[in-house]
Design a protein around this nucleic acid. Structure first.
Length: 563
RNA sequence: GCCGGGGUGGCCUAGUUGGUUAGGGCGCCAGACUCAUAAUCUGGAAGUCGCGGGUCCGAACCCCGCCCCCGGCACCA
């Protein structure tokens, strides 16, 4: 998707559901979104980046009960956890809110009210399981019983262990409460439905013009093609946003969660003193809205969400970018089976930039990403240490030792051509949401830097008198130019490390000193100034577990036995 | 079953308006260099591009049939 330059861009990243800790699977969405935002800024766009905690829903209520605390306490704990984790990884939101905020309650109530007024909501009586022991209605997935078709033990909404048929509420036999195990009764209860079915034509044409990745559109198109069923948008719960006029019902969490995108925009702009500024993004079609999500929630973002917005008279998102899921050693993520890598565990041992790098370098954004310690070690050692770290370290060391500053000399045409080539690929990568291509382009340039330095053998020139020293300086300057460009291209991926290198190049000193983060992409081809003071470099990344034998084939994961 | 994605040297993978010797990375082998974290650079071996037909002067790429893998099929956050 080519982005329009005249409008500001709002980028959102899926809301983490705050009932557990952050694992690297979460990061597959947040890190690329952050990289995207940083790149857009380098390309001159005005960007706002928001996200926040998804705080409602049954799982949080039950998890709170299990811990003997209130839902607020659970939310508070993990909200803080995610906020801190994102900060550690340099995923820098302009605003990170939570869906239980007053703003979101108000906005949700307003939107639901609109849907009601516009005739898109109707009442219907449902049979719902009620546990007398727990004293509450049970969502279908928390009901256990016998499948009426095959007799297997089944869940209220589907026969998950037997014939895998979808079960309608009330169909299941011998219902029991999954929480306490006691018998459950079905009772009639009034609920509200959203007329999703009446949005089929709208969605079909909306999807045709939707930007973002192909996987999102493909899935959504198929769902629309089949049949859209109306959607029950209320739940019998205490915790959540009350359905207007009904104290006994809250709206389904998938209603108030995406509305969080709007509320967070409101809260952010209010903080900036622009009380009504959010309308530009959500009411007036005055902005480009891009949602970063995982493939697991395409349905909600490409079907429910645009239908809700349309029905309530809001403007619509322009793009949905869906990242593939993360696997560990080829197997699906599973907390219960221990097949998971926690971010905190990772950061105990490695620099956050290394994780950011791996998450985008290892696979195409829309494809699944298979994490393994071996694969991580290979990329870290060969690419971050071998190609990038080595280039920076060898050239900066050499330059620092022999010149102390960026030497005099002309930047060769050959070098500028390579940088321009990489720059074009970087821009294309961002437009295609293919962050691996961005990394590949930048690493390709670093590779070129290594070959160039090697080929010219400046260490020999140094021994050839004054003329040799001059030619040597020119070679060094050329490679420093390449490193400068690499910094610009990889700043979005490795913000801390590239900023250090930028400083090492002397870019921050002097009257024309610049901050890498706020520099434009064009800076990559701007000549590095001779005379800038170089700094003695430090190692960028340490190799991952080189044993005495140098065997890197089966590195031990860090503290894997940790619970 | 339906739909989507994919099957390219040991492994991962690029490659759509079909066209000279199918590109890259990992691993492997050989050599070079010593500025650099036993890092780097150069070269090399290795591929019936899932199977079978077809269209074409020519197909990994187009058409037909088939096989295999992954994912989705909704109210689960």
């Amino acid at each position: 998707m080519k982005l329009p330059t005249e409008k500001p861009v709002l980028v959102t990243s899926a809301l983490p559901y705050v009932n557990g800790e952050c694992h690297i699977g979460h990061l597959r969405t947040y890190v690329p979104a952050d990289i995207y935002v940083r790149m857009l800024r380098k390309m001159g766009y005005e960007v706002v980046f928001v996200s926040g905690s998804d705080t409602h829903g049954t799982p949080i209520v039950l998890s709170a009960e299990a811990q003997g605390v209130t839902p607020e306490e659970v939310v508070e704990k993990y909200h803080e956890h995610f906020r801190r984790t994102f900060a550690e990884l340099n995923v820098k939101f302009d605003y990170f809110g939570r869906t239980d905020s007053e703003t979101n309650h108000k906005r949700t109530a307003e939107i639901v009210q609109r849907l009601v007024e516009n005739g898109f909501v109707y009442k219907k009586v449902l049979k719902q399981a009620f546990c007398n022991t727990c004293g509450r209605f049970l969502p279908d997935r928390y009901v256990e019983g016998e499948c009426p078709y095959c007799g297997a033990v089944a869940r209220g909404d589907e026969c998950d262990q037997g014939c895998s048929k979808h079960l309608e509420p009330g169909e299941i036999l011998e219902p029991r409460c999954k929480v306490c195990g006691s018998k459950a009764d079905f009772k009639d209860q009034e609920h509200f439905f959203f007329k999703l079915s009446s949005f089929a034509d709208f969605l079909a044409s909306y999807l045709e013009g939707l930007g973002g990745t192909l996987n999102a559109r493909n899935y959504a198109r198929e769902w629309v093609r089949k049949e859209l069923r109306d959607w029950c948008v209320t739940r019998s719960l205490e915790w959540g946003v009350k359905f207007p006029g009904r104290e006994d019902l809250v709206v389904y969490v998938w209603v108030d969660a995406p509305i969080g995108y709007i509320s967070f925009t409101e809260e952010l702009l209010k903080n900036r003193g622009k009380e009504e500024g959010w309308q530009r993004f959500w009411k007036e079609d005055g902005a480009t809205v891009v949602h970063f999500i995982g493939t697991d929630i395409i349905y909600h973002h490409c079907i429910f969400w645009p239908a809700m917005l349309k029905g309530a008279g809001y403007s619509l998102p322009n793009a949905v970018v869906a990242s593939g899921m993360v696997k560990i050693d080829g197997k699906t993520f599973s907390k219960t089976r221990g097949n998971v890598v926690w971010v905190s565990e990772f950061l105990e041992r490695f620099h956050p930039d290394a994780l950011r790098y791996f998450l985008v370098a290892h696979s195409s954004h829309t494809k699944e990403l298979d994490f393994s310690w071996g694969a991580f070690a290979t990329r870290l050692n060969n690419e971050l240490v071998g190609i990038l770290g080595n280039l920076v370290h060898r050239v900066l060391s050499f330059g620092y030792k022999n010149f102390g500053v960026v030497p005099e000399g002309v930047v060769k045409e050959e070098v500028l051509v390579e940088i321009e080539k990489a720059k074009a690929e970087v821009v294309r990568a961002v437009e295609e949401y293919e962050f691996k291509k961005l990394v590949d382009a930048a690493m390709g340039l670093a590779n070129f830097g290594n070959s160039f330095f090697q080929r010219e053998e400046p260490w020999h020139l140094l021994k050839q008198g004054e003329a040799g020293r001059e030619r040597c300086g020119e070679i060094v300057k050329n490679v420093l130019q390449i490193i400068k460009a690499v910094c610009v291209f990889l700043d979005a991926v490795l913000p801390e490390k590239m900023a250090e290198v930028w400083e090492g190049l002397g870019m921050k000193t002097g009257s024309a000193g610049s901050d890498l983060r706020s520099v434009r992409l064009e800076e990559a081809v701007a000549e590095i100034k001779s005379g800038q003071r170089l700094k003695k470099p430090k190692k960028m990344f340490e190799r991952f577990l080189a044993t005495a034998e140098g065997d890197l084939k089966s590195p031990q994961p860090p503290s894997r036995n940790k619970k």
